[in-house]
Amino acid sequence: MKLNDSDEQLMLLYVAGNVAAFERLYQKHKGALYRFCLRQLRRKVRAEECFQEVWIKLINSRENYQPSALFTTYLYRIAQNHVIDILRKDKKLLQETELDEEVDYYDMAQSDMVEELIAEDKVKKLRLAIESLPAEQKTAMLLKVDAGMSLEAIGDVLNCGRETVKSRLRYATAKLKVCLETNDETC
């Protein structure tokens, strides 16, 4: 097996019965997926349950995998659907509107946010701020920063267009800035 096998090739190898390929896939994506679940569900126990169930779903539905789609898209679509199911069951699905008009557009050029985030408390605040984002914006944000996905891939996972993803990221960034600037942990 070549070391530079793509995720899609590894998944096809696993479908053919090669478990070593699955182990490589798992080692590659487990951290990002786990953090995605953790940020979405906020609690470690629930995140672990969700994480396990997503991988089990992937294993059980491996015969349905089509290499035309990116593996990360396939994996995170399963994860996103499962997270939504869990949140619906808990009646904690937030009904935020996609475009919050009250949020002022952030002018990035006016401040140096990176300088302010150097301190450790700023890192914690950033994490809390991300967790407090509306569900759709938070998902887009996590898929971008945790899974490192492109706008198109995020759009595939969330079943929306590239422009919608971009808009969600923009508003999420603006909201993060407001939270971090005002030191408001509840925003």
Binding site: G31, L38, E48, V123, L126, R127
Partner: peptide
């Protein structure tokens, strides 16, 4: 910065 802080693993 986020990646640096995000080190949680299963």
């Amino acid at each position: 910065l986020y990646q640096e802080s995000a080190r949680e693993k299963p």
